[in-house]
């Protein structure tokens, strides 16, 4: 943001928004929105509470397992689709359908199948994130300069070395974009899954806070989630910026 030619640091604009929030909250126009100061106070109460620690542990565990699965499967599938037109034509349509379908609708069926625990959450994370990772990996691999691959082969690289040192590395700009989007979708997946299950993790806390009308706590939890999603995607974006210079010079 700029004002009269001066760049305003992000924290200043955040402060302005928090101030507006505070004023709006104190006016008590909408009971759903408490003043920002109350939310901050709630943060201090929520974070150390046993229910929060427990919910976070369950959530992060499901998220980590689900993401590991979708990174493995997504990158592998994307590389196959990128290198083999046959695989791309067999799998491409399905991956695209799943990527753009409202997978939330599948979660109740998963619950019926897998129960109300960890497996449902893990599969939800996986289903939400794997497709975009596969598609972006495919695009990255397709954009790898064919003569880089020929160069590797001409100097005697085995297929394994070719993929691990040249293809993956050259596809990194798109691959990282896919991972960043996948992380955000996976996080959405775990929270949506938990909201639908309503008896575990962060979803349970949301349910609990909103049912009992604990709005400051509700917003505190939301802010923590936002911050986590933001930090995770910024971490990947940091590496993306480091490799972006060669997206144009391959």
């Amino acid at each position: 943001m700029e004002l009269r030619g001066h760049r305003i640091p992000m924290f200043v604009s955040l402060l302005v928004w928090f101030a507006l929030w505070e004023v709006f909250g104190r006016l008590e126009v909408v009971s759903l929105i408490p003043p920002f100061s109350e939310v901050v106070a709630a943060l201090a109460v929520v974070v150390p509470s046993e229910s929060f620690v427990e919910a976070t542990t369950v959530t992060l565990q499901a998220f980590a397992i689900g993401m590991t699965m979708s990174l493995t499967v997504g990158i592998g599938l994307g590389m196959l689709m990128g290198r083999s037109p046959a695989v791309a034509s067999v799998m491409g349509m399905w991956v695209n359908i799943f990527e753009s379908s409202p997978l939330t609708a599948v979660v109740p069926a998963l619950m019926a199948l897998l129960g109300f625990g960890l497996p449902t959450m893990v599969v939800t994370v996986f289903l939400f994130s794997v497709w975009v990772i596969a598609l972006d990996t495919q695009v990255g691999v397709e954009r790898v300069n064919p003569s880089l691959v020929e160069m590797g082969r001409s100097f005697g690289a085995s297929n394994r070395v070719l993929y691990s040192t040249i293809v993956i590395r050259a596809a990194l700009p798109e691959l990282l974009a896919g991972i960043r989007l996948g992380l955000i979708r996976g996080l959405k997946g775990v929270v949506i899954g938990q909201l639908l299950i309503a008896v575990v993790g962060v979803g349970y806390l949301f349910e609990l806070y909103s049912r009992n009308f604990l709005m400051p706590e509700f917003w505190a939890l939301l802010i923590i989630l936002f911050a986590f999603a933001f930090l995770a995607s910024e971490a990947v974006a940091y590496f993306e910026r480091k490799v972006s210079f060669y997206a144009s010079s391959r």
């Binding site: 082969r153 001409s154 060669y246």
Partner: peptide
């Protein structure tokens, strides 16, 4: 197949940008 007694110089250089 390629072999160690032959080395290729590519028209578009084929350098790894990273």
């Amino acid at each position: 197949a390629p072999g160690p007694e032959r080395a290729f110089v590519f028209q578009d250089f084929a350098l790894m940008p990273w």
